[in-house]
């Protein structure tokens, strides 16, 4: 699943897959802005057929936590 999520992130962030590292953090990169964050959540919800709560969405600011909340739902 990690690979699949990385692929989605790379495509939503319009960046290369190598840039989506395991320690990726929204704070440290410019390509992960708030608008793309919204697009990412939409893509993930659709791909995995899940729905995140607003509190979770605002928590999902690192690759690790993105994976954590997806795993929690499926």
């Amino acid at each position: 699943m990690n690979e699949e999520v990385k692929n989605i992130m790379a495509s939503v962030f319009k960046t290369r897959i190598e840039n989506i590292t395991d320690d990726l953090n929204q704070k440290n990169v410019t390509f992960w802005d708030s608008l793309r964050h919204l697009n990412l959540i939409i893509e993930l919800e659709e791909k995995f057929g899940i729905s995140f709560e607003p509190e979770e969405i605002s928590e999902m600011t690192t690759f690790e936590r993105v994976i954590f909340y997806i795993t929690k739902k499926i």
Binding site: L38, N39, I42, E45, E46, S51, E53, P54, I57
Partner: peptide, 16 residues
Amino acid sequence: WKYYFTSFTFLNPSLA
């Protein structure tokens, strides 16, 4: 409504 209140999005983004 979730996206309406969190991101001020009107038309459902999943219809994008």
